[in-house]
Design a protein around this nucleic acid. Structure first.
Length: 229
DNA sequence: CGGGGACCCAAGTTTACCTCA
DNA sequence: GGTGAGGTAAACTTGGGTCCC
C-alpha cells in the first residue's frame, strides 16, 4: 500500500481547519507553524521555573496548579525545522535545542514525543481513508461479479434444446457447471455426444467462455488458477 | 548470567487553554 | 458579554525495551 509519506521526516499533508472567522476554511500544512494573526501566548521561562521540573511534574503539580506553556511562533518554527531533519534527538541535540529555544530539555523531549504521535495519527487517518475508498471500490466490483454469476446461472438453468437430425429426438443437453475452486464455467455432458450435439453445445460453451473470461479479466484475474482447471 | 538503575520511547490519559455556537 | 462543548497541544503516567555496571 502506498500511503506512506514522501519522506519519513516530513508528512506531505494538508488539512482543512475551520478558521476563526466562522464558516471559512483555511488550509493548514501540519508541517508548518500556524502563522498570521493567530494568538500565541508567549512562553515564559520565568513562570515555569518554579512550577515545573524535569521528570517531576506530578510532584510540582501537587504543590501548584499546572500552568500550560504555549510555545511562541519562533519556538514552534525551530522545533518543526528540527523535527523535519530528525524525528528523534540524542541528548546533546536535545540540550542544544533547549538552550537555543530557552526551554528545558524535558520540554523539548515532550514536544518531540507528542509530535511523533501526531505524525503517526495523521498517517493512520490517511491510511484509513485509503482503505475506506478501496473497500468501496471492492464492494462495487463484487456487486458486478455477482450479477455476472447470476447471468451464468441463468444460462445453466435454460440450455438450448437441440433436436437430432437423425432421430428427431431431443439430444441430451450439456450442462454448464462451475468449478468450485476457480469458479470458471465449463460444459459437461452426461452421455457421449454425437457430432451434431457437439456443434450445438459449442455455442453455449462459447457464450459461457465469453462470460467467464469477462470475470477473469476483472477481479478474478489475479486469482491463482488451480492446476486441475 | 542475572539484577538493578538509568534512560528512552510509544501509547494512553489528563488538563489548560482556545474557539465557536 | 457569559457559558458550555469540543478541539488542540503541553504535560503526565505507565509499561516495555535497551544499555551499562
Amino acid at each position: 500500500m502506498a500511503v506512506l509519506p514522501i519522506s519519513s521526516s516530513h508528512l506531505e499533508l494538508t488539512i482543512s481547519l475551520p478558521s476563526s472567522g466562522g464558516s471559512m476554511v483555511r488550509d493548514l500544512d501540519i508541517n508548518q507553524v500556524p502563522s498570521g494573526e493567530d494568538e500565541w501566548i508567549t512562553a515564559s521561562m520565568e513562570d515555569e521555573e518554579e512550577s515545573c521540573n524535569t521528570h517531576g511534574g506530578a510532584a510540582a503539580a501537587a504543590a501548584a496548579p499546572r500552568k500550560k506553556l504555549r510555545l511562541t511562533k519562533e519556538q514552534s518554527r525551530l522545533l518543526e525545522e528540527s523535527f523535519r531533519q530528525n524525528h528523534t534527538l540524542n541528548p546533546k541535540q536535545k540540550e542544544a535545542l533547549a538552550l537555543q529555544l530557552k526551554l528545558r530539555p524535558r520540554q523539548v523531549e515532550v514536544w518531540f514525543q507528542n509530535r511523533r504521535a501526531r505524525s503517526k495519527l495523521k498517517q493512520t487517518e490517511m491510511e484509513c481513508e485509503y482503505l475506506k475508498r478501496w473497500f468501496g471500490s471492492l464492494t462495487e466490483q463484487n456487486r458486478r461479479l455477482q450479477r455476472e454469476v447470476e447471468e451464468l446461472r441463468a444460462m445453466k438453468v435454460a440450455p438450448p434444446t437441440v433436436i437430432s437430425p437423425h432421430s428427431f429426438e431431443p439430444l441430451p443437453a450439456s450442462t454448464l457447471t462451475m468449478c468450485p475452486s476457480c469458479e470458471r464455467v465449463t460444459t459437461t455432458t452426461t452421455t457421449s455426444l454425437d457430432k451434431d450435439s457437439r456443434k450445438t453445445t459449442a455455442a453455449a460453451t462459447t457464450a459461457a467462455t465469453t462470460l467467464s473470461s469477462k470475470v477473469g479479466t476483472s477481479a478474478l484475474q489475479s486469482r491463482p488458477s488451480p492446476a486441475a482447471c
